[in-house]
Simulated scan of single mutants.
Amino acid sequence: MLQLFEPYNKDTNAQSGHLIEEIHMLVQGIRLSGFVYVVNGVSNINLLAHNEDGLPPLQIWEMARSVVEDYQEAISVNLLAYQQPNRGWEAPPPGFFKVNVFGASSLDGLGTSGVGVIIHDDSGSVIAALSKALPLQYPAAWTELFAMEQGVLLAQEMTLSKVIFESDAISVIQAISQDLFGSETGHLVQGIQLAKSSFLRCSFRHVKRDCNRAAHELAQLAKNSHASNVWKGVTPPFLVHLIQSGLG
């Protein structure tokens, strides 16, 4: 362990004063990140050191070292807690269905756009999928909203009651969550909002692209082939490996 304080002097008062100064420097040098108890611990040491009956310097030293060790242990646990593993796609809670959607547009503005939708049950099994080519090339924001619209329509067609809709387009989730009807895509947002009443329970969530791979592949297929396909009760053959790898 790194030595954070200087060795003691022989004079007791000088030792106490020196320790207090070092502890204050320690506090200033540490970004606590919410570990309030560290501040409290150091404050207690400071009060004890100024007490008329003051503690021996060695005991102050041990208390300070204990505080530092507690902090180091706590921050290591905290970092581990916030290091989320890359789990990929996850099945919905029991009784729910999960609808993942994706909209694909060409970067050069040519060709057509495509949307992909895939629906899983709570066991992770695919119950439906859609790969749909749009008649024109649309901006990315429009295409992502079209994808969500198609996801809602497919879920209604499958008569699902408890549904979680996921997209890796944060703008889409924000528009739906905040009822943003004022933009040029407002009519799409409003249509999705109205459709929510057809479900017993539903929610809209943003996910990372790694958790939306299957919908991405379906959208790319539609964009590149200019064709539309629907699968019900089966997994699209070209997605079998992806689904089995837990990246659906």
Rank of each mutant, 00 (worst) to 15 (best):
G29F: 10
G95H: 04
H50K: 13
I75K: 11
Q28W: 04
A91E: 01
S76K: 15
N100Q: 00
F102A: 08
V101R: 00
E62A: 08
Q59I: 13
Y82N: 11
Q59F: 13
P57G: 10
I30H: 05
L110P: 02
Y37R: 15
A81N: 11
I45T: 07
N86T: 11
L80V: 07
A91Y: 01
H50Q: 13
S16P: 02
D11A: 05
K98H: 00
S76P: 01
N13M: 09
P92M: 02
V39S: 14
F35N: 02
P93L: 04
A74F: 08
V101K: 00
E52G: 14
Q15G: 06
D70Q: 10
R31G: 09
Q83D: 09
G103N: 03
F97I: 01
L32E: 06
S106N: 15
G17H: 06
P7E: 08
G41L: 04
Q59S: 15
P57Q: 10
G103A: 03
R31N: 10
K10L: 08
Y8N: 11
Q15D: 10
I30L: 15
N44W: 12
V68S: 09
Q72R: 13
I75T: 13
E90L: 04
N46L: 14
L110H: 14
A104H: 03
R87S: 11
W89G: 00
D70G: 06
G54A: 11
E73L: 11
L26F: 08
L32W: 06
T12K: 14
Y37P: 06
I60C: 13
G109Y: 07
R31Y: 11
L110E: 11
N46S: 08
E22Y: 02
P94E: 10
G41P: 05
H50R: 14
Y37V: 07
R31A: 11
V42G: 04
S106L: 07
F35V: 05
N51I: 03
L19C: 01
M63Y: 13
I23L: 09
K98E: 01
V38F: 15
L80S: 14
G109C: 05
P56G: 07
G54K: 13
H18G: 10
A64F: 09
V99Y: 00
Q28T: 03
H24P: 00
A74D: 02
G41Q: 04
N51K: 12
I60V: 15
Q59Y: 13
P7H: 05
